Simulated scan of single mutants.
Amino acid sequence: MNILITGGAGFIGSNFVRYMLGKYPDYKIINLDKLTFGGSLENIKDLLDNPNHLFIKGDICDKGLVKEIFAEYTPDGVIHFAAQSHVDRSILEPEEFLQTNILGTFTLIDAARGFWQKEGSERRVFLNVSTDEVYGSIEKGSFREDSTYAPNSPYSASKAGADHLVRAYYKTYGLPAITTHTTNNFGPYQMPEKLIPLVILNAVEGKELPIYGDGKNVRDWLYVVDHCTALDVVFHRGRIGETYNIGAQNEWQNIELVRLICSILDELLPDSPHRPHEGLIRFVKDRPAHDRRYSIDPAKIMTELGWKPSHRFEDALRATVRWYLDNRSWCDAVRDEEYQKYYEKNYSGR
């Protein structure tokens, strides 16, 4: 089986490529990634010589390139991760998010429709990997797959637009599409501008740990490896035309999560001059339209496809902290000049 994975040099994408190559030795993975701020060859350098993995640097908005890939490699499935995916960046530069997340998705589904219509009746799947943020914020209860969309940031609005395009292509043209919505992921290879790696690395270096607002925003945290297993079962056994919510039912206030990370660092780094690391926490001005709470109900994927997370949160978080401590060369490589400029632009004056 040939599978086109977009955004396979990003955080979740690279973890998924590594997972699939390990589990399915007969699969050929074509990995298309533009290598913007969210992706890096550092994430997949151990995979570049794998004969079942072909990396192509390119833009999903490039119609000619996308059509060439379909024509040459005839993928049986597409797993679409590629996206501009940081809310803070979407507030600073929204146009890039609209371009990649909406027009890029259009380019992919239009190419898939054109090529798959010419092929036989074998099962093919376009798996659109999306976010719980399209539902907006919820005070009580949890969002289900049929909940109303109410995105509140340029990022989530662009992902909502992509979801609607995928659904329209399923309804209008019969594109064999499935969409998933996931909660906040964490684990190895996540870019340091995201909350968990940002806190780990800043704390190790004795820098302030910036917390938006009062720190009581709530997120459901899912270990990236568990997300990979969920996508695996959806891709292979999910019903065409359906949506599946993927969550761990593991909700934490931001401030409590940061305190937990600090306590883990206190334990792992007993000689750190910055202990207790919790003393580095600083509350900063909140970002615009900051959703208060995300919560999705994963009952459908659990009951229909038999999936559930297999990692205990505290164990996975500890393993993640250890990974960042043990891979400082990776951290230094991805915190390049572009990252430093973003960090200064986003946090200066807060």
Rank of each mutant, 00 (worst) to 15 (best):
G10P: 07
P273Y: 11
N43Q: 08
E267A: 14
L108D: 06
P188H: 14
A168Q: 11
T303Y: 10
Y324T: 01
E42S: 06
T320I: 04
G120W: 04
A316V: 01
S295C: 09
V125R: 09
H80R: 03
R282N: 15
Y347T: 00
G247D: 09
G161T: 12
R335Q: 15
N254P: 01
L198V: 00
K140H: 14
F313V: 00
I296S: 10
R89H: 11
G206D: 11
V334C: 02
L222I: 07
W116V: 15
L257Y: 10
F115L: 05
T131H: 11
A160G: 01
I261E: 11
E337Y: 01
P75Y: 01
P192S: 10
E68T: 11
A333Q: 07
S310V: 04
K308N: 02
V224G: 03
F235W: 15
F283E: 12
G114K: 12
S329F: 03
D46P: 07
A71I: 04
G77N: 02
E242P: 02
N346L: 08
M191F: 04
L103T: 14
S329W: 00
H181D: 06
Q99S: 14
S90P: 03
L127I: 11
T243P: 03
Q253R: 15
K67H: 09
I246A: 10
D271T: 08
G161P: 05
G215H: 07
R239W: 06
P210Q: 09
I255Q: 14
N15H: 05
S40P: 04
E242Q: 11
I91R: 14
G58K: 03
P151H: 14
T172P: 01
C331D: 10
R322H: 04
S156C: 11
K345M: 10
V321A: 01
S272A: 13
D271G: 13
R18W: 02
K207V: 08
F16H: 05
K34H: 15
L317V: 01
V134P: 02
D110F: 09
Y223D: 09
G174Y: 04
T182H: 03
R144E: 12
D297A: 05
L201C: 03
E96R: 09
T148M: 07
R335C: 10
I196L: 13
E338W: 05
K140S: 14
P176M: 09
E337K: 02
A203K: 10
E119Y: 12
G38W: 09
G279K: 15
E96M: 06
E95P: 01
L201E: 10
G120D: 15
L265R: 15
L127E: 08
L32Q: 04
H164G: 02
L32I: 03
S14H: 02
G174Q: 02
K28F: 00
G8L: 06
W116E: 12
Y342V: 05
H181R: 14
D315L: 00
P188Q: 12
A82K: 04
K118H: 06
T180L: 02
G349P: 06
